[in-house]
């Protein structure tokens, strides 16, 4: 494995001037990205998450060369994005969930042809890529439709194809599933997961944590311009989350199942037909709990719910100080 992206104390601040009185203006400095360092290896799939204004898009812009860093630097595909923007553009693909790279009044297929010409993709490798995307993303029904008439889901599939035509080493996706319906999201995720399997490095920013769950082996959490946590999803979860939940479906309604060993909290649903038993990771195991349960009531079904990824991130935010080791996993 080799490093595809190296961000070295990447920092970006903006000057915002606002009215202070009738004519006076005051300038304040806002730090959008504060000395962020990380490395992405070839073939990884990294989720870059954080609330609005956390600095995600600013980082992406610096990594793609649209924005020059205030200080620090980055190397992407061995190039300096700020200096070699156009050379880099030929080697990466970028998908913005809310900006189109397609021509709104042209059929999708013609937009692809234009991009082939813009990125100077040889005919056969273009055709190979296109056929693959058309098949996997099921583009055939609307290849001849003008982009403005496509549904959002169809358009996004077109956008992803457009970003892949020149066979980029790295695919950067900025909120790729925003506004999509569930089916479109799932289809897109399956495609991206497959793409990553076959070697394309993925870096995606998202609000939708299902994207991360489904796609990303690694999670980077950013807030206020700083990386709060960086590591494999499972590891972060084990480290931060100390509670698990056993969801029990009973054959008939029952009052809350209190008093089981190791259970800290009980919530009921459907008049007690379904009960959520929250237990400490270190206090007991799911197996022990289940055997204790079946002694008391008739159980229809059980499942262990891992805490929602939202919860995971919420807890990460709660930790006020971030050990240095964490940012450099």
């Amino acid at each position: 494995m080799s490093a595809l992206i190296v961000a070295d104390r990447l920092r970006r601040s903006f000057h915002i001037s606002h009215r202070a009185g009738f004519l006076r203006r005051r300038r304040t400095e806002v730090v959008a990205v504060d000395a962020v360092s990380f490395t992405v290896q070839r073939g990884e799939a990294v989720g870059y998450v954080g609330p609005n204004g956390a600095g995600k898009s600013t980082t992406i812009k610096m990594l793609t060369g649209i924005l020059t860093p205030s200080s620090g630097g980055a190397t992407v595909c061995g190039l300096d994005p700020a200096k070699d923007r156009r050379a880099l553009a030929a080697r990466i693909g970028v998908v913005f969930g809310q900006r189109s790279q397609l021509w709104w009044d042209l059929p999708l297929s013609e937009s692809f042809e234009l991009l082939r010409s813009i990125f100077r993709v040889p005919k056969d490798s273009y055709q190979e890529r296109l056929d693959e995307c058309v098949e996997l993303l099921e583009l055939t029904p609307f290849l001849a439709t003008p982009v403005r008439q496509l549904s959002l889901g169809q358009r996004m599939r077109g956008e992803v194809t457009a970003a892949l035509l020149h066979d980029p080493e790295l695919l950067v996706l900025d909120e790729p599933t925003i506004g999509l319906d569930l089916e479109s999201k799932e289809r897109l995720r399956a495609f991206l997961a497959d793409l990553n399997q076959r070697g394309t490095t993925l870096l995606l920013t998202t609000h939708d944590l299902d994207d991360i769950e489904r796609l990303c082996g690694r999670l980077m959490v950013i807030d206020h311009g700083r990386v709060l946590a960086d590591g494999p999803l499972a590891e972060l979860r084990a480290e931060v989350v100390t509670e698990r939940t056993l969801v029990v479906d009973l054959t008939e309604p029952h009052p809350p199942l209190t008093g089981l060993p190791g259970v800290r909290e009980v919530r009921t649903e459907l008049d007690g037909l379904r009960q959520h038993l929250v237990f400490g990771r270190s206090d007991t195991t799911a197996a022990a709990l289940i055997s204790a349960l079946v002694d008391r009531v008739a159980v229809h079904d059980v499942s262990v719910a891992e805490p929602e990824i939202e919860e995971l991130i919420r807890r990460l935010y709660k930790r006020t100080t971030v050990p240095d080791a964490m940012t450099d996993l």
Partner: peptide
């Protein structure tokens, strides 16, 4: 304003 210029900046032209 719409960020469309960024899309143009991301092409090798």
């Amino acid at each position: 304003r719409t960020g469309q210029l960024d899309v143009l900046l991301l092409r090798p032209l």
